[in-house]
Design a protein around this nucleic acid. Structure first.
Length: 284
DNA sequence: CGGATTTGACCCGCGC
DNA sequence: GCGCGGGTCAAATCCG
């Protein structure tokens, strides 16, 4: 994975109001997004998002009540590379990461016991868990959803508990990438957190998998930041959309994700979901 | 003392 | 086949 192609932010997007379509990675069957043009906007709307020039800057809208101001997105290819939006741009993106070429692997399977083998421990020392993964069997990737957040802290509170299990230096980035796993033993959700090499104030969070449980609570009794929406709710909600191509099964035209000037007063399950995820996208 | 984090090693997939 | 880079493991360490 290298340079030019994928991890070169800014190639897929322009950095101001003249947006371009992210495109589709044919090799990976990953599709992306939208932006300014009518066509892209229509595509966007199919995802349940509406894009309005006058609201499109809300990503940088400073919400002091949040961990950081909200910025969106991009998608990610199954190879793990990120198609980043330029940090100065507000890009709404839906990820439709076809995580595996194997059609038998349902993207909706929140738990994938085929591998995992209970993480660490439990197996004989002579059989390293890494090898337990069936030989010849490709590493199975779950649907992923990534987004960008302007935040000073790397690891944003999202209502779930995470255990860090790794950290790696990333090529072309001065910032390391951290790997987290949900502490719930039955939950296979993982997330990666890294800072944008372009804008160190931007945190790129990538979720993989779906939580099979609820949040553990709302730590500060306050507002759940938007990350929670993705981590715990959006992800399952959008699972039907994890397919190549932009084929929306239904009309889910809901109000655009506007910056709600009045943040949720009550820490409901929605958290900021209401801010950024059209109700129509939520499965429950 | 138990759980979380750190960190070096190892494995795997992919491009050349 | 080889090398590179991403992802994961697991022992050591840290911390409440």
């Amino acid at each position: 994975m290298d340079d030019k192609e994928r991890s070169d932010p800014g190639t897929a997007f322009t950095s101001d109001s003249s947006w371009t379509l992210g495109g589709q990675d044919a090799a990976e069957s990953v599709n992306f997004f939208f932006s300014g043009s009518d066509r892209e906007s229509s595509i966007l709307s199919q995802f349940g998002w509406n894009l309005h020039p006058e609201t499109s800057s809300f990503a940088d809208h400073d919400r002091s009540d949040l961990a950081g101001s909200i910025s969106y997105g991009f998608t990610e290819s199954s190879t793990g590379s990120l198609q980043q939006a330029a940090p100065t741009t507000t890009n709404l993106a839906r990820s439709a990461d076809v995580s595996t070429p194997n059609p038998s692997v349902s993207s909706s399977s929140s738990e994938d016991p085929t591998e995992k083998s209970t993480g660490s421990g439990g197996k004989p020392p002579e059989i390293p868990s890494k090898l337990v993964r069936k030989k010849g069997q490709k590493r199975i990737r779950q649907p992923r959803f990534a987004f960008m957040t302007k935040s000073e802290v790397d690891h944003l509170e999202d209502g779930y508990r995470w255990r860090k299990y790794g950290q790696k230096a990333v090529k072309n980035s001065p910032f390391p990438r951290s790997y987290y796993r949900c502490t719930n033993s039955k939950c296979t959700v993982k997330k990666r957190v890294e800072r944008s090499s372009e804008d160190s104030t931007v945190v790129i969070t990538t979720y993989e998998g779906q939580h099979c449980h609820h949040t553990v609570g709302f730590p500060r009794g306050g507002v759940l930041n938007h990350e929670a929406a993705f981590a715990g709710h959006l992800s399952p909600a959008i699972s039907p959309y994890y397919y190549p191509g932009i084929h929306m099964p239904q009309e889910t035209r809901e109000p655009p994700i506007l910056p709600d000037p009045t943040p949720p007063q009550v820490p409901t399950d929605d958290g900021l979901l209401g801010d950024i995820v059209p109700p129509g996208m939520r499965s429950r």
